[in-house]
Design a binder for these strands. Structure first.
Lengths: 248, 248
DNA sequence: GCCGATTTGTCCGTATGTATC
DNA sequence: CGATACATACGGACAAATCGG
């Protein structure tokens, strides 16, 4: 549990912004004010503010202050910009959510699979194909490859629940980073067969690589989403915005 | 020009990782080692490392060290996880890229448009519709709404080039944050008419809100991409298990 | 245009806590 | 247990941007 000073302050400010104590387009109290209020150093306040900026809740302006840029997000949206499991995402939207395991095998990575997934040749992986059902309707077809070395003892029963929960709670490992590439592709025969596509002629495909706390990539996944239920949210911040020439 | 100590160190380490001096799955020299080598405080090194972690180049492991997790990204990919203009993205891929302005008008925001875009009622906006051509083929249909208040003096000629360049270079304003939502939708009549869709039956739709350095949302845009040329890359990190140290 | 007050940005040194080996 | 490495926090100093008088 992060009970450090800075995350407490981060939480506090975040809630105040969400509840409208600090309103959009207005400034937060100055860093020195806040550090006095929270009885901490300015550095600690700055860190909390940096986290809020990361979440696009605020933006710092040199010499002026910290503006609130938070806007109430539209409801019924999946925040795939963060890492959360399907379960978490759907639960948050209050829907009935089931998983059906279509395939559960182990494979040895050959050259072709290695090029596709980035795993080393000869590594052993679970291949799991799962269908995600929302209120009984198939919405996602997942193709997972997990390194057996990192996730020993995986079973179809666990796959039906949450692999991440198993990894974190049972094995004590931590998921840290996920890289994702999103494309739109034509449905495959498999998609047609299991997804009940009717009048939809494309799939949203999320290809992701997941790394644990050791920095090892242990998962390669391709998720094929039915467009109707697909939405992907992300925030980007400009890295090194150059200072403009004001000609004066 | 960011010639601060920490960005220099960040750049240096980044290049060493990209060029393979520090290889994946290996540890960087310890923070104390690096601070000695760069003749700076440990805090400054930590900040550079935090930035690399942000880029998913490295990951810190408490008590052990900092692992390199960088992997050569596949070529011909658009890094939409960051903010870059169409021009930048396409140029980076070495293709001929043109813009055709289909529509250029000013509107006053009414209730309907306000709900859609988030702009206040009564605000005045430019509405610009542009077709993006890659080697002569239409690939993106852009629908932009820009606040005239923030970007005065916009013309079709500028829209044909880069609005962001105009904003940053001429007006001295800076783009800082962009929020994006990605969905997959059926082609509209307009899409069919201008995009030459042939055997493609869906569009990748990116809806984005852009904020300037003052924290004001000045742009609302819907970009409709032909799937064939569409790819969206993003990185997510779990929770706020940050190794970031932005204070020192 | 200059000056001073305020505010954020950068950097340092130091101390202490905690995880790994 | 001790040595090493990262994590958190503090306080101080100075730079740079903004704004008002």
């Amino acid at each position: 549990m992060p009970s450090e000073r800075y995350s407490g302050i981060y939480q506090d400010l975040k809630e105040k912004i969400e509840s409208g104590v600090y309103k959009p387009q207005t400034f937060l109290p100055s860093e020195t004010m806040l550090s006095a209020r929270f009885k901490c150093s300015r550095g600690t306040v700055r860190r909390a503010i940096a986290m809020l900026a990361e979440d696009s809740y605020v933006q710092s302006i040199h010499g002026k202050g910290v503006v609130v840029i938070y806007r109430e997000p539209p409801a019924n949206r999946f925040a795939f910009g963060e890492i959360e499991t399907m379960r978490e995402a759907f639960a948050r939207n209050g829907r009935d959510y089931r998983t059906k395991v279509l395939e559960f095998t182990t494979l040895t990575v050959d050259r072709r699979l290695s090029r596709k997934t980035g795993f080393s040749e000869g590594e052993e992986v679970y291949f799991i194909q799962r269908l995600r059902l929302l209120d009984g309707e198939p919405v996602i077809l997942d193709n997972n490859f997990f390194l057996t070395r990192i996730i020993p003892g995986l079973t179809p029963e666990i796959a039906e629940q949450s692999v991440y929960d198993y990894l974190e709670k049972e094995l004590g490992d931590t998921i840290v980073t996920t890289k994702r590439v999103l494309t739109v592709e034509e449905p495959t025969e498999m998609d047609e067969k299991v997804m009940d596509l009717s009048d939809c002629h494309a799939m949203a495909v999320v290809t992701s690589e997941t790394y644990n706390a050791e920095g090892e990539m242990f998962e390669y996944t391709q998720s094929r989403h039915k467009p109707k239920y697909f939405s992907f949210y992300t925030v980007a911040r400009r890295k090194h915005a150059y200072s403009a020439d004001r000609n004066q």
